[in-house]
Design a protein around this nucleic acid. Sequence first.
DNA 1: CGGTATCCGATGGGATACTG
DNA 2: CAGTATCCCATCGGATACCG
Lengths: 129, 129
Amino acid sequence: MPLGQKLPEGMRYDVYTQACPSRLVLDRVADKWAVLILGRIDDEPVRFNQLRREIQGISQKVLSQTLKKLERDGLIRREVFATVPVTVEYSITNLGKTLADTIRSLARWAEANIEAVTQAQRRYDEAQS
Amino acid sequence: MPLGQKLPEGMRYDVYTQACPSRLVLDRVADKWAVLILGRIDDEPVRFNQLRREIQGISQKVLSQTLKKLERDGLIRREVFATVPVTVEYSITNLGKTLADTIRSLARWAEANIEAVTQAQRRYDEAQS
DNA sequence: CGGTATCCGATGGGATACTG
DNA sequence: CAGTATCCCATCGGATACCG
């Protein structure tokens, strides 16, 4: 049931009930770092420190934690290669790909509308002062 | 520039640089409560306590804060009616509508794939133990 | 290289009480 | 009804140090 759609009397939107499983997914998606990582890991596999360099501002700890969550959710795959020193590659799964597509449309919205948003913020802030 | 797309050598993805304005938008979007509120406020205006009831689990404080942010970003509109007691109606703006559409596609993804995600989590957890 | 462990300060957000 | 104010605790996340 999509958000914001009309429902028969007496019914509630699933997503707004606390026990709703969709909220679990939302919790994962509503994570800035997870979104950035999922957006970055595309077709070709990426290594840990490569991600760290490309996603500026993420700490080693948070990157590690977020990768684990994404792997647990079946959105990315972690492969270890017994080189010296060890190499670890992260790649996106088929499931993750479908989510990444949706996320990309979000990113496109952000880039298309950042101007309108900052303008609105300026108007709001001036009206307050 | 959409996420995950190939770039000419030496260029970086905008979204991955710290100063990128798109990150500001992402910060707002990557907010579980903001997403739920934006998804709920559709065509017809909604009142404060109505939202509070329908979005289960949100506290008065967080609802108030999040509504303010969304209004500041120009995504929702706040109208006060001088009734007794006072009535406040929140409605979505044209800008907000375009974002809500994107968000709904995210919610659809969640509802369509929650099963696959929880299954992946079970597999992961069993492999760990 | 690819992490984990620990410490610790900032922030988020719930509970409660109060107000125009 | 529609909030604001305060307290307070839990989680987030940065910094640093260490490891296979």
